[in-house]
Computed example of a mutant assay.
Amino acid sequence: MLMEKNCTNFIEVLASSAPVPGGGGASAYVGVIGMALGSMVANLTLGKKKYDDVQADIKNLLSKADDIQKTLMDLVEKDAEVFEPLSKAYGLPNNNDEERLYKNKRMEDCLKLACSVPIKIMETAVEAIILQEELAEKGTKIALSDVGVGVLFCKSALMGASLNVFINTKLMKDRIYAEEINAGVEKMLEASGKRADAVYEKVLKSLK
């Protein structure tokens, strides 16, 4: 269980020649850290008289942030799980037409499965970015820089996971399906990337 390892263990495994965790799991892990920073800002805001008017919102944000963190932690594990069948499919024999047909079918199924987790990482990172945007408005100003760092990490999770989609869709034989997936990914990158940049710029402007 990757998420049961401490940070040092995780980094050691990530740096090794082991096939997992890879870029997808690392992206989810970075997203967890980004969202945890958001939770910290919310906790620092909670109970502060200066922010009485947003206490209900902050409690709601904390609950959502906790759900996002748990989801991303689960996705670190799931990304490793879906890569295993794909790695095995690469090694299937293709010495004759029957073997080639089976391998192509198996590869296609495994590539689609391998895309599913990084897409979910991206979707969850989008939720995290939206939450960071609200924290930039309502969170304590003494920790505003942490919102900026957090949203950058969440954007990194978004962008990193996208690469793990594209590397798999590129190999798909079903190009219609692949291009549909790519279009959805590009849409998330465009809209949520800009959103994250806007939050970061707002934080930066307030600090300088």
Rank of each mutant, 00 (worst) to 15 (best):
E186D: 08
F153S: 09
E12W: 07
L131G: 02
V165E: 02
E123C: 05
R106G: 02
N104D: 14
A125G: 08
I167T: 07
T124V: 09
I129G: 02
Q69H: 10
T169L: 12
M107D: 01
S192W: 14
L101C: 13
K59A: 09
R100A: 04
V199F: 09
A114P: 07
G148M: 07
E4M: 10
A128L: 07
V149R: 02
K208E: 04
N96G: 04
D197A: 07
K141F: 06
D146Y: 03
N43V: 02
V82N: 05
G139Q: 02
D146T: 04
F153Y: 11
F166N: 04
L135S: 00
D52V: 04
L101I: 12
D197P: 13
L37Y: 05
D174A: 11
S16P: 01
F10M: 12
D74F: 07
V76E: 00
D53V: 06
I119T: 03
I33A: 14
A114L: 10
V203A: 02
R195T: 01
A15C: 13
V199K: 00
K48P: 03
K103I: 09
E123W: 04
E186M: 14
N96D: 14
K5F: 11
V41S: 00
A80P: 04
Y177W: 13
N95H: 11
I11D: 05
G91W: 08
Y29K: 10
E12M: 11
E186A: 07
K112M: 09
C115N: 05
E190I: 14
R106M: 10
L113Y: 06
K49R: 15
L92T: 05
R106L: 11
M1P: 11
S63R: 13
L144W: 04
S192H: 15
K205R: 14
D67K: 14
K202I: 04
I121S: 02
C7W: 06
K88Q: 12
M107W: 08
R100D: 03
L44T: 01
L75M: 10
L75R: 08
V76Q: 10
A191P: 07
F153T: 02
L46W: 01
D74G: 11
C115K: 00
L37D: 01
T71R: 15
P118F: 00
N6G: 13
N104L: 12
E81S: 12
L75D: 00
E4S: 12
M172F: 08
V165N: 02
V82S: 05
L75A: 04
G193M: 00
V185G: 01
A42I: 01
S17V: 10
V13W: 05
G184R: 05
M73T: 01
F83W: 12
M35C: 10
I129N: 03
R106H: 06
V203W: 08
L204V: 03
G47L: 09
E190S: 15
L92V: 04
E12I: 07
V76L: 13
V147D: 01
A198H: 01
L101V: 12
A183L: 15
N9P: 05
E99N: 10
K112T: 00
K208G: 13
A191I: 15
L171Y: 05
E12F: 06
E190T: 11
I68F: 13
G23H: 08
A143Y: 11
V203F: 08
E133H: 14
V185W: 00
E179T: 03
T140D: 03
